[in-house]
Design a protein around this nucleic acid. Structure first.
Lengths: 145, 145
DNA sequence: AATGAAGGTTGTAGCGACTATAAGGTCAAG
DNA sequence: CTTGACCTTATAGTCGCTACAACCTTCATT
């Protein structure tokens, strides 16, 4: 079972330990996000708990919506132990702004889709208020020609 | 000024009339979403108000978050005049579900980012609760080792 | 008539964050 | 010694555009 020392993981083992897929791990490797993996004699990647933690950090940051570029910066910051954490806070704030913008966009979308859904009266396409409404752009105006 | 009849648009004119970019229009053409554009003697695309309306429908559907594949189906439905509009309503409902799912995902993200932002106390990275929190995965537990 | 700007045409490649496929090498177990 | 699960690399596909290159056409001005 343990093809390597109990202090090392292959990609697949790291995948199981983190929830990331093996292909994704190799992808991060290629991008230099998960660097300096050792190799076994036959060329297998060998990871330690250090890389596992780094990968977990990456996955959790992704789950927070950060881009891989953002995450690269966050990782750099996390490594500069004596720097101010204001830069980290700034990145979180930025992300919060992006999320809130996206939220209000989606809320507008939800409202509009609800309106469309409500105006369906179950007839045939010719009389479909939804199609009509999308075609016309705005709220359908019952009084207009 | 009028290189073509006043009943026809070139891509650029159609772009101005609809807000879509000319490249996007050609892209839709290539995908077959905006088919059967006539051509001038020199090969310029010539559109009529029929295609303009179709393009507006596409753009408005995109603004509602529908994928181009969804839109292809919606356009097919819109053309089948005597079909039931239940299928249209179903697609709107589906989209509403997708939007609501995305909304609640984003709301969870917002909450999590707010929590992270709040726990920054302005020290150095070594003591950064944000980095710590992302590294550890969940809420940081002040009582744990 | 010539020229230059502003349009149009095609094809190709890039974005982000994966995902899929192919063609092969390695390893542990039966 | 074979099977099957794992690993390796390289390449192409996803979505909805966007950017670029290289060329052709139209229009207005000189």
């Amino acid at each position: 079972m343990t093809m390597v020392s109990d202090r090392h993981f292959t990609v697949g083992q790291l995948a199981k330990a983190t929830g990331a897929k093996a292909v994704t791990i190799r992808y991060y490797d290629r991008l230099g996000l998960l660097p300096s993996a050792g190799r076994s004699a036959s060329g297998y990647r060998l990871y330690t708990s250090k890389e596992r933690d780094r990968l977990l950090f990456i996955r959790r940051s992704r789950a927070l919506g950060f881009s891989l570029d953002d995450i690269r910066e966050l990782l750099d910051l996390a490594d500069r132990k004596e720097a101010s954490c204001a830069a980290v806070d700034a990145k979180v704030e930025e992300q919060l702004v992006r999320v809130r913008t996206r939220l209000s966009d989606l809320q507008a979308l939800e409202t509009e889709l609800e309106r469309l859904s409500d105006c369906c009266e179950g007839g045939v396409i010719t009389d479909c208020r939804i199609i009509e409404s999308i075609s016309a752009g705005g709220r359908p105006d019952p009084a207009s020609s």
